[in-house]
Computed example of a mutant assay.
Amino acid sequence: MATRFNRRQFLATGSATVAVSVLLKACASPSSNNTATTTSPNTAGSPASQGFKAAIVLPGVITDKAWNQAGYAGLNEVKKQGAEIAYVEKIGQAEQAEALSDFARRGFNLVYAHGGQFDAAIQQVAGQFPNTFFVGVNGAATGPNIASLRIDHLQASYLCGIIAATMSKSKKIAYLAGQEFQATQEELRGLQLGAKSVDPTIQVSSTFTGDWNDAAKAKEAAAALISSGSDVIYQWLDNAAPTVLQTASDQGIYAFGNTADQFEVAPKAVLTSAVKRIDLAIAKLADLAQKNELKGQIYSFGLEEPTILHLGKFNPAVPADLQAKVKKTEDAILAKKITFETCTEGGKATRCVKGAA
């Protein structure tokens, strides 16, 4: 069975040994407690993977059916490569640096920090542990032993923006996320660009709850957006996502799933989902690390990697001609007939769309 640690115990133990166990998923149901867990490697790993240890620090729980669960799934993909793996859940901002440091002290070769909100903590600790490579998922930090892994959120949200603007009756749509940092800013920008390509006058508002998992805050924010007239909500939340999708369904408006295909969560409301197979992207970088080919740079995956980034199941309410328009636009992005280039707008650096389908 898996050896499990209370979060406070994990953060306080420093270089204490973590017991190796069989795969958690096969042996025990996840606890809601904050824990650190290791699992033994598969025996079929490549020679390069022997003795390789990878860990992930998660801001939420591995059962959220969204961001954190996708990160945990990625860690298990790394296990299939023959690595020993470990994770810790529900790490808040004040605990980030110590959680990352503790895995490094335990001799882990690769440590993922699962969210752009970890960038400052990564930069704080990486120089102290040159033998550990830190990867910020959705981050922007780089360094000798720091890489960032990104999905091109703007590409997917651009396509969703086209759908949102076409399906909206009020001509008011909204973006709702947990925190504001580069990845969410880019996703919001894509939604704006896609929507305005359909209707330049459409209003796109945004709200950040400050918490990816607080369902009460998310429900309150969604209700406020609906009260202000938004009839389509593009959300990016973790454990709080189902609450927003269900609120949209109850109020008779539309919404978008995110990270996982969340159509079944609220089939009356979800138009489609921006499916981000971050688990496969995590595994790709682990493979590079085991080959000593991982570099201190930003690795970005977009629609050109359809197994990693794609749209999910369409709601029957989305007309066939609109689905065809979205597919034509996606093809134009892949053919580079539509590009998203760095520009300045309102005195700030952003990305602008060039070209047409």
Results as ranks from 00 to 15, higher is better:
Ala126Glu: 04
Thr37Gly: 02
Ile91Leu: 11
Ser273His: 14
Cys352Thr: 03
Cys343Ala: 09
Glu305Asp: 15
Lys65Arg: 14
Phe103Asn: 04
Arg4Ala: 14
Ala215Gly: 08
Pro144His: 07
Val20Lys: 10
Ser230Thr: 10
Ala83Met: 05
Ser205Phe: 04
Gly71Gln: 10
Ala141Gly: 08
Ser170Val: 05
Ile298Gln: 09
Val326Gln: 07
Thr344Pro: 00
Val270Met: 04
Asp331Lys: 13
Leu280Thr: 08
Asn33Ile: 11
Ser40Met: 15
Gly302Arg: 07
Lys276Cys: 11
Val88Gln: 03
Leu311Thr: 02
Ile91His: 09
Ala349Trp: 09
Gln323Gly: 08
Thr35Gly: 03
Gly229Ile: 09
Val244Tyr: 10
Tyr72Asp: 10
Gly51Cys: 03
Gln69Asp: 13
Val18Arg: 09
Ala222Ser: 12
Pro130Gly: 06
Leu311His: 02
Asn42Ile: 09
Ile226Met: 11
Ser230Met: 12
Lys325Gly: 08
Arg7Cys: 11
Ala73Gln: 15
Lys79Gly: 05
His114Lys: 08
Leu303Cys: 00
Tyr254Pro: 03
Leu285Cys: 08
Phe129Gln: 07
Asp321Met: 05
Gly51Arg: 07
Ala241Met: 15
Gly178Ser: 04
Glu187Phe: 08
Leu159Val: 03
Asp102Val: 10
Pro30Arg: 01
Gln251Met: 15
Ala48Met: 13
Thr63Arg: 06
Gly71Asp: 12
Thr342Gly: 11
Val88Phe: 01
Gly136Phe: 04
Val61Ala: 14
Lys169Glu: 14
Leu149Cys: 03
Ala104Asp: 01
Ala121Met: 01
Glu180His: 06
Ala140Asp: 05
Ala16Gln: 15
Thr243Asn: 05
Ser31Lys: 10
